[in-house]
Amino acid sequence: MANDDEFLDKAVEGLVLFAFNQGEVCTCPSRALIQEDIYDEFMKRCLERLKAIKIGDPLDPENMIGAQVSQEQFEKIINYIDIGRQEGAEVLIGGKAYKSSKYPDGFYIQPTVFKGNNKMRIFQEEIFGPVLSVTTFKDEKEAMEIANDTLYGLGAGVWTRDVHQMQKFSRGIQAGRIWCNCYHAYPAHASFGGYKKSGIGRETHKMMLEHYRNTKNILVSYDKNPMGLF
C-alpha cells in the first residue's frame, strides 16, 4: 500500500471495532465504505486482525469479546446473517455462531463481515451484533451518496489523511455525531442525538439543561397606588 504506516494500522483497528457489539450499541458501526483502489489490501489486513480476536468467557482477561446479551438477540443476528446470504451478500469472515467449549449453549456469534451493496437489508437495518456490511466507492461523490442513503443518522466515522476531505465529509454526512480518525469516543458534554429517523433533539450537552427547566416570568408592580382608571 502507498502509505504503510501507523495511521493505516489505526484505520484497520478502527474498522475492527464493530466486533465489540454484544447486542445493542446505538452508534454501532454497521456499514463500512472503503475506497475501491485500497480495498483488497485494506480488507486483507482487517480480516487478519479479525481472525486474531479471542471469543469466550468474558471473565477471562485473555478473551476480547463475549456472548450476545440474550437468546432473542442471538436469534435475531442469526436471522439477519441468513437474510444477508439470501440477498446475495458474500461472507468474508464468520457468518455463524461460535461454539464455546466452556459454555456450549452460550449466545456467541463469530465476528462477521459481509460484502454487498447498500440496498440490501443488512446495510439498511440495525443488526446489533458483531456484524459489519462493507461496500466500496470510486470517488468522494459516490462515498457521500452511499453514506447518506440510509433512513438513520446517529453516528458516523470518517477516516482520511486529507484534512479537506475530513471537513467535507464531517459536514456533509447527515448524522448527529461524526468521529474523524477515531470511533466510539463518548466524552461528557459532547452533544448526542440523531438526524433523520435516529431521533429528535440532543442529549448530554449543556444546552440540554434547558429541557429540564421551567421558564417563569414574574411581573411585579412597585407602585402602591391604584392605576387611576376609575
Binding site: K76, F128, L151
Partner: peptide, 9 residues
C-alpha cells in the same frame, strides 16, 4: 419496528 432500540422485530 425499524431501527434502533426496539430492534427490527
Amino acid at each position: 419496528s425499524g431501527g434502533c432500540c426496539d430492534g427490527s422485530v
